[in-house]
Design a protein around this nucleic acid. Structure first.
Lengths: 214, 214, 214, 214
DNA sequence: TATGAATGAGGTTTCATTCAT
DNA sequence: TATGAATGAAACCTCATTCAT
């Protein structure tokens, strides 16, 4: 493969200058997302993306370094989306409701992004950058959970001796992988039963043996 | 593009006839496992495998159809290994010990096979066959868990209204993905704390609010 | 084994868009013809063709699916050439002259294309498409002959009871295979004697026992 | 490909020593013929032949140098068969009957051997040896025809000024290629009409304008 | 003589990426 | 900025033939 030319590399680094250029870039990103969702990363061809975006090969490389690079951009979009979706204020009723709400919001944030998340997961094995991105995404959720539990510990509704950090990691892992099984690997779950089962585990964990009141 | 000959296909289907052939096949499998663990699936070349096995290209295709095919064989080996590792008789002391034991055995079965499991996971997205294999592997663990819980329900140590099926799925997902994060994505966990946190969740779930005795 | 991408296939189906592309395609076709004539089909490598065309492997597959596909295109060119060569207006003198003229034109049309025709013949045994192409080529000549004879039957210079269809087939076969022996299998014939012998047979067949006047 | 070892080469040169060896050799030949007829030369694998003969690769190379070599042997058998079939004594009635008889015998000799003859034809383009074999086969028929015509010239039933050599070549070419079209390229002919048309051409050629009596 | 495992040169085809226009 | 042609490294897989047993 030939080395990139200084001129073209510069153009990519600078990014689009005109509005038309910015619009073009967005078209390519949108097209890439659709293609990745449809075909996965390996089976997605740059040719497919440019066709979907009604652009040409040359144009693609005006805006993106590599196929990996455009995927990273798509992935970042997904991460931002999920952050926003889950950042909604929590209703402050009882623990039970709060848990149910957290789980429902996770599922609803995950579902439309499942395909891209699965690809991040897949690429995380081969690419340090994707691994970091993937771990960041989950970390933001896990830390949010952790802070929530810590607040409950502070007001005494959760036992003080709970290992909050590791518990948050584990409960997070459970949610993530259940959604992966469900949305990406095609395992069939009934939504209501599943959400209840997950909430039951969270609730039992945070509220063991009648500690405090719900 | 040459198509495989019926005769050649037959030879592959039948498998090695002599001991020498069987040994060769095994060498290739062992080599393939090492290469896959080292380089992942995508970056593993058939050339790497035959080099590692001190064999020739032709020999590879005497025994295996494709790179995918040999991976499937490697994966099957891993699955059998894990089945055996986890099939050890359970000590019948209290719930707490049983849970800790189950989790420890899972971790110890998972750890040496983590790389291959991660690849199964990766390939499951693109290949129906790998997806089936992957789901089978987890199913055997989840069903074992489920049966264990059902037995405890029978003797009253676990609430009768627990949704055993979905709970087993969720607890299984938690274990699997935690191990994946730990062994394959390089997340750093302290083994003792992690095992305790996981066991805590299991225990709280199965033994909520002082139901029965530990 | 990688499958062709839909996008790539489309590009090949659509054909070159720019003049530069069209020129490139033609270069490849010309090169392919030379290589096939020199080395035959089996011994012609795609590598030989691209080398002859001063192009790269990738470029070849931009324009053609397979080695078979480019041969089919070359063959079509030959067929068109021959159609044109033989479509020249027939001088309307006596039967004897007309027969000689037909045979001479056949030989002159065949000679420069003999190598490719021989390859069509060779491939016709293995490929349905080539068989159809081969039979089409001869059919156009045989039908032309047949119509010629029918016109002569109409004006009474050829017996009405002649089986025109089968006779045309047989006389055609004679011409074709004689040329094949001569130009492709290296049998040595003197052109004048051969043309006379062939014409003698045609003439005797169409004008038996002094039927009509020459 | 490795060079043949002196030992093995010698064995092949010497040929089978025991009866068992001779039988084995024949099994391989018979199997090869069936495989070639079924699959053609290119698509016939040595593996197919040994399977059909219930032998092993090693055994094959005990008796034959190459795939080409065994084909040549098969072809020789066909050639001998055809010689015998056509060497039957000619009934000495009139020219018309003799011509019909010659054509019928050709067709009947050709038909069962059409597949192998077609392969000889196909290989003749690439191999000097096969070309020689192919030309020999037709030559024996053409020369027989030629001698027949010369005898008729001697007794005055065929014009003395006929170019017997070239005419025999041309009439032979017609027969051969008609059979090739019919039996190998799948062109549909009605046997009776075809034989009559061919005989008509022969007869008109040898007996033009009422020369002599039939 | 017979077997079947082993060889490896050789071929086809893809696709991310660059560059001339 | 946009286009699309060109590149070529790289990968997979076959099969005639040899050789150890």
């Amino acid at each position: 493969m030939r080395e990139p030319t200084a001129v073209q590399q510069t153009r990519r680094d600078v990014g689009p200058i005109t509005d038309r250029g910015a619009a073009r870039r967005r078209q390519l990103l949108d097209a890439a997302r659709r293609v990745f969702e449809r075909q996965g990363f390996t089976d997605a061809r740059v040719a497919d993306i440019v066709k979907e975006a009604h652009a040409s090969h040359g144009t693609f490389y005006t805006y993106f370094d590599t196929k990996e690079a455009i995927f990273v951009e798509v992935a970042r979009t997904v991460i931002e989306d999920m952050h926003e979706d889950m950042a909604v204020a929590v209703p402050t009723s009882g623990l039970d409701l709060r848990v149910h709400d957290a789980i429902d919001r996770f599922i609803h944030a995950y579902r439309p992004n499942a395909a891209i998340i699965a690809l991040m997961e897949q690429l995380a094995l081969d690419s340090v950058e994707m691994r970091a991105l993937r771990l960041d995404l989950r970390d933001s959720f896990v830390q949010r959970t952790r802070r929530g539990i810590e607040r409950m510990q502070a007001d005494g509704s959760v036992p003080a001796d709970l290992d909050v950090e590791y518990t948050a990691e584990a409960l997070g892992a459970m949610l993530e992988y259940t959604c992966h099984l469900w949305f990406s690997l095609g395992k069939e779950f009934e939504e209501r039963r599943l959400a209840d089962a997950l909430a039951g585990i969270w609730f039992a964990t945070l509220h063991p043996e009648g500690h405090g009141a719900p």
